[in-house]
C-alpha cells in the first residue's frame, strides 16, 4: 500500500527530462502514474528516483494535421483521447479502446504514453496502435527517433525503448473513407484487463468488397498479435458473415498464447476467434455506414 522512498524530479521540458534520466539510470518515468504507482505500492517496483513528466506542456494534447494524421502527446489522458472529436473522426478505433481502459477514474489520470511504455499485454492500447499503424516518437540522448508500433512491443512489459529514452508522441494516420473499425474486449471480471481484446479495421472497395483489413489482439500473447493471415484472406472477399467466419477459423493463429490462472491458453485462443469475428463484422457494418 505504501511506495518505497525515491527522489523526485519534475522537469519542465523533454530535454531536461532526458538529461535527468541520463544522470540517474535507476530512475523511472512517471506520467499519470497509473501503471507505476500501483507497482510501487505493492513494492514490485522500487526506483531510486522518479521523473515526473506529467507537467511538460509539449507532451500533452491532441493535434490533427491537415493530412488527417493525429499527433498525440504521450501524457494525454485516456479520457482526453476517448472524448476527443479529432480522434473520433480520424481514428475512432483508438477512442473506442481508450474508453474501455480501466474505469472512469483511471481514464482521467492514465496516459497513452504511460500505457504503451508499460507494455502490459492485457492492456487495451497495444493492439490498437499496431492495427492503426501508429508511429511512436521517442526522445533520448541521441535525439529523436520514430518507432513503428509493430516494432515497439518486444515482450511482456518490454519495449524497444532504450534506457534514457522517453516516449513523447504517438502519431496515428487517419483511417480512409469507406473504412470501419471496432475494438471489442472480453475483460477479466476483477481487473478489467483484457483476457482478449480484438481490434479490427475493414476498408471497402466501391463495390463493397474488402479492400484492406486488419485484425490485432491484446491479452492473448506476451505482445500484441497481428493476425495478418486473417486480414489477407479477407481482402477481395465480400465480407459476408461466412467469409469472415471462414477467414478467422482457417487463418487465425495465436503465437505463444498465454495461459494463467485467469484463462488458459486454449480458451484465450477461442476468445480470439469469437471476438475477432465479432469485431470484424462490426467494423464491416460501420464501414458500410
Amino acid at each position: 500500500m505504501i511506495p518505497p522512498k525515491f527522489d523526485y524530479h519534475r522537469p519542465t521540458s523533454v530535454q531536461e527530462a532526458v538529461q535527468l534520466l541520463q544522470s540517474s539510470p535507476e530512475a523511472k518515468v512517471l506520467a499519470g502514474g497509473h501503471s507505476l504507482i500501483p507497482l510501487m505500492k505493492l513494492r514490485l517496483a522500487a526506483p531510486a528516483a522518479v521523473i515526473d513528466i506529467g507537467r511538460i506542456p509539449d507532451l500533452r494534447g491532441i493535434q490533427a494535421l491537415d493530412s488527417g494524421e493525429l499527433r498525440i502527446g504521450a501524457c494525454t489522458t485516456h479520457h482526453e483521447i476517448a472524448t476527443s472529436q479529432a480522434v473520433q473522426r480520424a481514428a475512432p478505433l483508438l477512442a473506442e479502446a481508450a474508453a474501455q481502459i480501466g474505469d472512469r477514474q483511471v481514464r482521467y489520470r492514465g496516459t497513452i504514453g504511460g500505457n504503451l511504455a508499460h507494455a502490459d499485454p492485457a492492456s487495451d492500447l497495444p493492439a490498437v496502435v499496431v492495427a492503426l499503424n501508429a508511429t511512436l516518437q521517442a526522445e533520448g540522448p541521441q535525439g529523436s527517433r520514430s518507432i513503428p508500433a509493430a516494432e515497439f512491443f518486444v515482450d511482456l512489459m518490454t519495449t524497444t525503448l532504450q534506457p534514457g529514452e522517453i516516449l513523447t508522441q504517438i502519431r496515428v494516420p487517419a483511417l480512409g473513407q469507406g473504412t470501419g473499425s471496432c475494438y471489442l474486449k472480453f475483460e477479466h471480471p476483477a481487473s478489467g484487463y483484457a483476457l482478449c481484446g480484438a481490434a479490427a479495421i475493414v476498408s471497402l472497395n466501391p463495390d463493397g468488397s474488402c479492400a484492406q483489413a486488419r485484425l490485432c489482439f491484446n491479452g492473448v500473447s506476451a505482445r500484441p498479435v497481428d493476425a495478418a493471415a486473417v486480414a489477407q484472406a479477407l481482402v477481395g472477399s465480400d465480407l459476408s458473415d461466412g467469409a469472415i467466419d471462414a477467414a478467422v477459423e482457417d487463418h487465425l493463429r495465436v503465437p505463444d498464447p498465454v495461459g494463467d490462472i485467469h484463462a488458459s491458453a486454449s480458451y484465450r485462443q477461442e476468445l480470439a476467434k469469437a471476438l475477432g469475428k465479432r469485431a470484424l463484422k462490426a467494423a464491416r457494418d460501420r464501414a458500410r455506414g
Partner: peptide
C-alpha cells in the same frame, strides 16, 4: 494465494 489482490479476485461490479 494466487487470487491475492482485487486484481485477481472478482468482487461483483
Amino acid at each position: 494465494l494466487v487470487t491475492g489482490t482485487m486484481l485477481d479476485y472478482a468482487v461483483p461490479k
